[in-house]
Design a binder for these strands. Structure first.
Lengths: 127, 127
DNA sequence: CTATCTGCAAAACATTTGCTGAGCA
DNA sequence: TGCTCAGCAAATGTTTTGCAGATAG
């Protein structure tokens, strides 16, 4: 994998961010430094970087995927109204073995755990 | 809410099914009984039925959403290759209160827990 | 040098929506 | 009979892809 200018800047910006941005948000952000980058390039690189394990793709926060500069699994809190994602301040303590010990013909590889909620912005708007 | 012919048949088929079908799969299924139903009608009804709490919408299994005739929460096992969804044979025992007791400015409303795995079909194909 | 990558544009795909006529209650 | 709903088609929003030229290693 080459370290192109585009790829490097996408990675840097994502590592700096704690906001779990969408591809379009990353595109907007990166364009301040590389005005001619294309959205296709952003998508392609986010995909490659997450396949390489350098970032992670969050698939569970609504219609748009979000991306996380921290590739290691950690607990996310997701706003069920707007899809915003926040990192939880501490990890839950869970007995994973107990959880994955189910009778099934699937090959169990892991669990997905997220907290659902309403973010301050949505809470203010809708109530 | 009216019980139209279309709505009734969509609901019946979904209640009979244990396969957690996508909207298009439900469309194909229902067309055997109602050849002129439109995909838009299927989407509209699945949305209404899930808002009414008569079915549930599964938002976390890939690019297409899936639907479940059982509205009550229960544990799903999701194939991370093809998105297929299976019901787990038993519920996990979890201390939900402990999980949701995190310091955050989000209003926590629940947790999302799923098992991830590889289904028999994908396991056969890819290894 | 050359295999990988970029920008651009078009395509693909799931889902939603506007409109007009149909049908449930 | 009135209000909700269906069918159709077009629009929308996100993501992917084909291609020709650019560039990292």
């Amino acid at each position: 994998m080459r370290l192109t200018k585009q790829r490097k800047i996408i990675l840097e910006r994502l590592k700096q961010s704690r906001s779990h941005p969408t591809a379009v948000q990353i595109y907007d952000e990166v364009r301040s430094e590389l005005p001619n980058i294309s959205l296709g390039t952003v998508y392609r690189n986010l995909d490659i970087l997450s396949k390489e394990g350098m970032i992670s793709k969050i698939e569970t926060c609504g219609d748009q995927k979000r991306f996380d500069g921290i590739p290691d699994p950690h607990l996310h809190i997701i706003c069920s109204r707007c899809g915003k994602v926040q990192d939880a301040p501490q990890e839950p303590d869970l007995d994973l073995d107990q959880l994955t010990r189910v009778e099934t013909d699937f090959l169990i590889t892991g669990v997905r755990l997220e907290l659902l909620g309403v973010c301050p912005d949505c809470n203010r708007e809708n109530n």
